[in-house]
Amino acid sequence: MGDLLGVAVLGAGHMGADHIRRLDQVVSGARVAAVADPDTDRAAEAVGAIEGVSVHAEAAAALDAPGVDAVLVASPGPAHEEALLAAFERGLPVLCEKPMAPDSAGALRVVEAEARLGRRLAQIGFMRRYDAGYRRLKSLLDGGGLGRALMLHCVHRNVSSPPHFTSAMLINSSVSHEIDAARWLLAQELTAVTVLRPAASSGAPEGLVDPQFVLFETERGALVDVEVFVNCGFGYQVRCEAVGEAGSARIGDDHGMVVTARGAAREEVPQDYLVRFADAYDREVQAWVDASRRGQVTGPGAWDGYAASAVAEAGVRSLRDGGRVTIGLADRPDLYAPAGR
């Protein structure tokens, strides 16, 4: 066990429990060393029969537990900044689920703290960069196979939204994935955003602005549109089409099992992001473990987490006030070279 990367998992909810399972059963080179959750019964249930794992109510206790070499943060967003800063203080590599922080000010504090260290420790959980379809599309764009990129058309649909979901969360929770994917696919920053409100779906909870249509502008003139619909009722769908001067390419049309019976054919649609992106999560965590054991960070970093927060905040302002909102980013520290996008 001493040869394995000992990981402290912070948060044992839906996402945290899945990461505990993944570290124990799927990923090589790592083990779960400690788990922290205010609900210690839930944490113990997530750990199950895994041997050698300590369970804690406080995140700091898990970080200081014997055998901890790295941290995976899957706690609620408001706890992320404190967890990241605590990991930095201990020199621990950390994989943090998005959002890196609930607001751009907190995200910038994380960037500045890591920049003062002079080395990268944080990877942010934008797992679409590890999805096979997104990686093929990235390779095609980088290789010039579509010519100069002009547009991205994106769709992000959920079966239903949880009770606590707000209209702003359609942007800062759901569309945040498209924000990072667009920056990564196009290798450009987003410079302006406009959020439009179609007629609200009758399937949306009262007062929730759902669906929304989000239009981003980039620094080199490309446009990115996102249909986000979190109460579509039928399944979880994520699609992206890139349009360039020399062609187009679309991902996300992968077909599930088709059932033919009683005179009809029915195709299954994933109902959950953990199903749609299961392979991407596996590759993401494996890549993080491998890089951490080498003392490296190879995935999306703190600057990407900050940029996503800043863009999302501008989107929420457009949703609230209407109209086009320009996006301003702080100066990028030297630690985060553009090649690290």
Rank of each mutant, 00 (worst) to 15 (best):
A105G: 14
G106A: 06
F234W: 12
I179P: 09
D290S: 12
E313V: 04
L72F: 13
I179K: 03
G301H: 11
V259K: 03
R266H: 13
G16M: 07
C232W: 10
G11P: 04
A36M: 11
A302V: 13
R183D: 00
A246T: 14
I251M: 10
L150P: 07
W303T: 05
A70C: 10
E112Q: 14
G48R: 08
T191V: 14
L117F: 07
F126D: 01
Q25D: 10
M169K: 11
E82C: 03
E241S: 14
G203D: 12
E206M: 12
S318Y: 02
A182M: 02
D279M: 13
L150C: 12
A30T: 08
P66V: 06
L85K: 07
A307M: 10
A291Y: 00
G147S: 10
Y336G: 00
M257D: 04
L215T: 06
G235K: 04
R128Y: 08
G2I: 12
G207H: 15
C96G: 13
E268R: 13
G6I: 09
G52R: 12
L185A: 05
E112M: 09
A65I: 10
E268A: 14
D64A: 15
G144A: 13
A36D: 01
E89V: 06
N172W: 05
D272V: 05
G2N: 15
V193Y: 00
D334W: 03
L108M: 08
R294W: 04
A246N: 14
D282Q: 12
A79N: 08
P270D: 01
D304K: 00
V47K: 06
S28N: 07
L185F: 03
V214H: 00
D131Y: 11
A337E: 05
L150R: 15
V7C: 14
I251F: 08
R317P: 04
R320I: 09
L170N: 13
S160I: 01
Y273G: 15
P93R: 01
A181R: 11
D103W: 07
D18S: 14
Q237M: 15
E97Y: 07
G106S: 06
R22G: 04
Q296E: 15
V243Q: 09
G13D: 01
A278Q: 12
L190P: 06
E313T: 02
Y236D: 03
L108K: 00
L92T: 02
W288L: 06
M169D: 08
A83F: 05
V325S: 02
Y130G: 06
V297L: 12
S176G: 08
F165E: 00
D103A: 13
T218I: 07
G67E: 01
Y134E: 09
C154K: 09
V71N: 04
L215M: 09
